[in-house]
Simulated scan of single mutants.
Amino acid sequence: MRKEFEVESHKLANSIDDARKRSILLFVSYITGSVMLVYGILHLFNHNHLLLLILFGCSAVFYGNVLFYHLTRRLNEACEFESILVGTFVLALVYQGGHENTALYWVFPFPAILFGLLGVRKALVMNIILLILLSVMLYVPGFIEAQYADAEKSRFLVSLSLVIIVSLINDFFRERSHMAMSQVQQSREKQANTDVLTRLVNRRFITVSLPKYLNQNPENFLPLAVIMCDLDHFKKLNDSYGHECGDLALKHVAQLFLDHLRQQDIACRSGGEEFLFLLPLCGVMDALHVAEKIRAALVETEFSYQGQPIPLTASFGVSLCKVSNGLDEAIKVADLKMYEAKQAGRNCVR
C-alpha cells in the first residue's frame, strides 16, 4: 500500500504537466486551425489549388484532432497526433512555399510547440528528423515546388537549429526542475506523515492523507481491519531504565510489527506507546489472528538494554471498517476494545 500512495503522489505531481500539455494542444489546434481557415478563405480565388488544399486540409485535421481529445480525453494520443500534424504541415508548407514564398517564416514557432507537446526526448528526435528533411527539400534540386534563394536557405536552417537548441535547453531544465520539485514535495509529504523515531507513519497520515485514498478507491481497502495496540507498563519502563531505553524499545517493536504485517498493511505510531494497524481487505477473524501472532512474537522476541533482558508485552483491540466514511468510528471501537484488554489483565487481544 505504501507503493500505491507513492504512485498517487506521482500522479498528482504530473497533473500540472498534463494541464500544460493540454493548454498547448488546445491553443495550437484552435489557433492553427483558425489561421489556416482564414488564410484559405482569403486565397479562395487565387487558383493556387495546392495552397488551398494545404490550408483547408490542415485546418480540418487540426479541428478534428481537438474534437478527438474532447470526446476521448486521451491527452497523450492527441498530443502525439498533433505533433505529426505539425510536422506534416511544416513540410507541406515549405514544399509549396506559401503565399508570396513566405513559408519559411511560419516554421520557427513549431520546434517549441513540439517540445511542449512531446517532452524532451521525443521532441528532439522529431525536430532532428524535420531539420534533416527540410535540408534535403531545400538543397536537392527540383525536389520541391517552391524556389528559395541560397542565402535564405542557409540562414533559415541555421536560425531553425538555434531555435531547436534553445527549446531543448529550456525544456530539458524545465523537466529537471519539475522532477526535482516533485521529489521535494514527495519528501515533504513523507516527512510530514512519518514518525521520526520509529519511521512508521504517524497519526497525521491516518487522519489527513488516508481518508482521501479511502474515499477515492474504497474497493482497494474495504473491509478494512483496524487493530489498536498499546505497550503494557511502558511508563514504568521509562521510569526504571530511562527514556533512551524507551526509545530503543519503541524502535524494536516497530520493526517487529513490520516483520509480521503484509506489504499492503499499514503500521502507525498513533502516539506515545500506542500503535495502530490497518489491514486492507481483511476480516475480523483474520485480524484477530494477526493481532495474536504479533502479541506472541512480542513476548517471544528478546529485547535487552545494556545487557539486561526486558520483557515487553502489549494489549490489542480489533474492529472492522466496512464503509469509506467509517474509519474514525472503527478506530474508536478498536480503542475501547484495547482498554478492555488492559482491564482483562493486559497482554491479550480483544
Rank of each mutant, 00 (worst) to 15 (best):
Y63F: 15
Y69K: 09
H70R: 11
L71N: 03
T72S: 10
A78D: 12
A78R: 05
E80I: 13
F81L: 13
E82V: 09
S83V: 08
S83Y: 07
L85K: 04
T88S: 15
T88F: 13
F89Y: 07
V90F: 00
L93S: 10
L93I: 02
L93D: 10
Q96W: 12
G97K: 05
A103H: 08
A103L: 08
L104M: 08
L104K: 01
Y105Q: 13
Y105A: 15
V107F: 05
F108R: 01
P109E: 02
P111T: 04
A112L: 11
L114A: 07
F115G: 12
G116R: 02
V120C: 06
R121G: 03
K122P: 01
A123S: 04
V125I: 14
I128F: 14
L130E: 01
L130S: 04
I132Y: 08
L133E: 10
L133F: 12
S135D: 01
S135C: 10
L138Y: 08
L138P: 07
Y139D: 06
V140S: 03
P141I: 04
G142L: 01
G142M: 01
F143Q: 05
F143I: 00
I144M: 13
E145M: 08
Y148R: 09
Y148S: 12
A149F: 11
D150M: 11
D150G: 02
E152S: 14
E152Q: 13
K153I: 03
S154Q: 02
F156T: 01
F156R: 00
V158L: 10
V158F: 06
S159W: 03
S161G: 15
L162K: 01
V163K: 05
I165S: 13
N170S: 09
F172V: 09
F172W: 11
F172R: 12
F173V: 07
R174V: 13
E175M: 10
R176L: 11
S182E: 13
V184T: 12
Q185M: 03
Q185W: 03
Q186L: 10
E189C: 09
K190T: 14
A192N: 03
D195Y: 03
V196H: 07
V196R: 06
